[in-house]
Simulated scan of single mutants.
Amino acid sequence: MDNLIPVNYDTEEPTVSARDLHEALEINKRFSAWFESNSQGFVENEDFTSVLTGTVVNNGAQRKLQDYKMSVDMAKHICLMSRTEKGKQIRQYFLDLEKAWNTPEQIFARALKMADRTIDKLKTEKAALIEDNERMKPKEIFADAVTASKDSILIGDLAKILKQKGIDIGQNRLFQKLRNNGYLIQRKGPSWNMPTQKSMEMGLFEVEERTITNPDGTTKIRKTTKVTGKGQQYFINKLLAAS
């Protein structure tokens, strides 16, 4: 498979540089104007994230350029909107990559890689975790301090609350933990990271739906998993007890 455009696999979901896609599509329009018009209908921090990239100028100095990390789904949509043979070719390239990404061999390889990273991190954090464990006793004090919120929050916000409570876990690791323990759906596809039947029956999550209008007039439903007040109290107490 020809490497038409670099794809970053270091994040939870593969991403593509908007500047790389702009160059690969051979767009003559200025990058900033092109991205502004093509990003309409997409949600920042969900479909794309603003980043700065470095480039070397004539005198050898580094210059920072505005760039965006886009989801592969967003990149495919932009390719389709380009209505060019190049766009069609790159879109098919992304589709082929997705097939390879979801083969059993690749899924197993990613699981092993994640496990290795987790083991290495746990080794370096062992002493700190033991200290935190002692500092947080008795756990009942923390549990009593957690008040169920009336408002549902994003899983990323729950990770921040856990961090404040002494649980060293980020958004990606929390998503992984919730999937591994049967609270979120692991299967890749439209239902990925949606609540399982078990967790919905327990009242731990709710799903927020939003209708997004694309530049071509079509619409799509954006589903977002949120942690209910009951779920916030449940997971905070559960993770505190396990620490």
Score class of each variant (00 low, 15 high):
Asp2Cys: 03
Asn3Met: 15
Tyr9Lys: 08
Asp10Met: 10
Glu12Phe: 14
Glu13Phe: 07
Pro14Asp: 11
Thr15Ser: 11
Val16Tyr: 00
Ala18Cys: 05
Arg19Met: 13
His22Glu: 03
His22Gln: 02
His22Cys: 02
His22Thr: 03
Glu23Gly: 05
Glu23Cys: 04
Ala24Trp: 00
Leu25Trp: 00
Leu25Thr: 01
Glu26Cys: 11
Asn28Met: 11
Arg30Leu: 13
Phe31Cys: 03
Ser32Tyr: 11
Phe35Leu: 05
Phe35Tyr: 07
Ser37Ala: 15
Ser39Gln: 12
Gly41Arg: 00
Val43Leu: 08
Asn45Asp: 14
Ser50Gln: 12
Val51His: 03
Leu52Thr: 07
Leu52Met: 09
Leu52Glu: 13
Thr53Cys: 04
Thr53Asp: 10
Thr53Ser: 09
Gly54Ile: 00
Gly54Leu: 06
Gly54Tyr: 02
Asn59Val: 04
Ala61Ser: 15
Ala61Asp: 14
Gln62Leu: 12
Lys64Ala: 10
Lys64Arg: 11
Leu65Ala: 12
Gln66Leu: 13
Gln66Tyr: 10
Asp67Cys: 04
Asp67Tyr: 01
Met70His: 01
Met70Asp: 01
Lys76Arg: 14
His77Asp: 15
Ile78Lys: 01
Met81Leu: 13
Met81Lys: 06
Arg83Val: 04
Glu85Val: 10
Gly87Phe: 02
Ile90Pro: 01
Gln92Tyr: 11
Tyr93Trp: 12
Glu98Val: 10
Glu98Asp: 14
Ala100Ser: 13
Trp101Asn: 11
Thr103Gly: 03
Gln106Thr: 09
Gln106Phe: 08
Ala109Asn: 14
Leu112Cys: 13
Met114Tyr: 10
Asp116Tyr: 08
Leu122Glu: 13
Lys123Asn: 13
Lys123Cys: 11
Thr124Tyr: 12
Lys126Val: 11
Ile130Met: 12
Asp132Trp: 07
Asp132Val: 01
Asn133Gln: 14
Arg135Ala: 15
Lys137Glu: 15
Pro138His: 07
Asp144Cys: 07
Ala145Cys: 11
Ala148Leu: 07
Ser152Leu: 08
Gly156Ser: 15
Asp157Phe: 00
Leu158Glu: 06
Leu158Ala: 05
Lys160Cys: 04
Gly166Lys: 01
Ile167Thr: 04
Asp168Tyr: 06
Ile169Phe: 00
Gly170Tyr: 00
Asn172Arg: 05
Asn172Gln: 09
Asn172Trp: 01
Leu178Asn: 00
Leu178Thr: 04
Arg179Cys: 09
Asn180Phe: 05
Asn180Lys: 10
Asn181Met: 10
Ile185Trp: 02
Lys188Cys: 09
Lys188Trp: 12
Gly189Cys: 06
Gly189Pro: 01
Ser191Gly: 08
Ser191Thr: 14
Met194Ala: 14
Pro195Gln: 09
Pro195Asn: 10
Thr196Met: 06
Thr196Asn: 09
Gln197Ala: 15
Ser199Val: 05
Met202Asn: 13
Met202Arg: 05
Gly203Pro: 06
Glu206Phe: 03
Val207Gly: 10
Arg210Glu: 15
Thr211Asn: 13
Ile212Phe: 09
Thr213Pro: 06
Asn214Glu: 14
Asn214Ile: 03
Asp216Met: 02
Gly217Ser: 04
Thr218Ile: 03
Lys220Leu: 10
Lys220Ile: 07
Thr225His: 00
Lys226Phe: 03
Val227Lys: 02
Gly231Phe: 00
Gly231Val: 00
Gln232Trp: 00
Gln233Ser: 10
Phe235Ile: 04
Asn237Glu: 14
Leu239Trp: 11
Ala242Ser: 15
